[in-house]
Design a protein around this nucleic acid. Structure first.
Lengths: 142, 142
DNA sequence: ATTTAAATTTGTAATGATTACAATTTAATA
DNA sequence: TATTAAATTGTAATCATTACAAATTTAAAT
């Protein structure tokens, strides 16, 4: 058994654990989301996976992402209008989008403060935080 | 001079201050954004203002909002994909979107903590925070 | 006041991401 | 192997946004 197959088996098990039948397409899409850190959009995901699965349809990418989101193993990033991106890291973290190069960075946050948590009788399921500005690299190149 | 005209004059002055020529359309759109607290989308804004300006075009609403955003007197709210909303309150505050009724609430936040502010050489221009869940009203009605 | 130029508004068409849906293919079960 | 269900695919429809040119309004100049 090769190392590659071994990793795919891990992903298959992970998908099963969350009630998703691990088809080849689903494994490949999730694998890509896990290893990439660029928070890709549907088009980027499609263009990448279609190299491996030439018959892949963009509808499958949409369907697959929908089920991932529904099961809670992928998070949607909506920073810019008309630019939906996806993130396989569902742990609590913030996003920084560089207005110059467009890159999205992750950063750690801590939402433990009571004055943010206490919304007086509201039930909070998701917390999203994102900043916009200019990244280190772009500032350097000016 | 009526009270209504007086308020419109205030808005006209405000727009001028930010380098926007205060046309009737622009005044009405900004006035509506200022008084409403529901963070409306383009369609809602259009449907409301067209009652007063029957010749209004949706393109004008888009153009006007773009210039408001460019000048920094209106903020874009992108919580849901394909649901861009607008807010004339550009002061720092968070948004809570109820998954049940869809309503967006404002809440106060304080971003003074160093561990959130310090992104190590990154220049932060905008900070956005939003939560999702179920609001007080919807929880009560269950 | 009239003319000219610039800015704004308007309407229609184009774009592009997402969704709907039916047909095809694949996988699971008997 | 035959049957059924699930997943994938491709095409068409939808819907928000943008592009763009024509019409209108406003401002400036004469």
């Amino acid at each position: 058994m090769t190392l590659k197959e071994y990793k795919e088996q891990d992903i298959a098990d992970y998908l099963k654990k969350y009630g998703i039948k691990p088809s080849y397409q689903r494994i490949k899409i999730f694998e890509y989301l896990r290893k990439t850190k660029s928070h890709p959009n549907v088009d980027v995901i499609f263009k990448e996976i279609v190299k491996v699965i030439p018959t892949l349809s963009k509808t499958t990418v949409y369907n697959t992402l929908s089920s991932f989101i529904e099961k809670g193993i992928v998070a949607v990033i909506t920073i810019e209008e008309n630019e939906t991106r996806y993130d396989a890291d569902t742990s609590m973290h913030g996003h920084f989008k560089c207005k110059s190069c467009g890159k999205i960075y992750d950063f750690d946050i801590n939402f433990s403060r009571d004055d943010i948590d206490d919304l007086g009788g509201f039930e909070v399921d998701e917390k999203h935080l994102y900043f916009k500005g200019n990244c280190k690299n772009c500032l350097k190149n000016k």
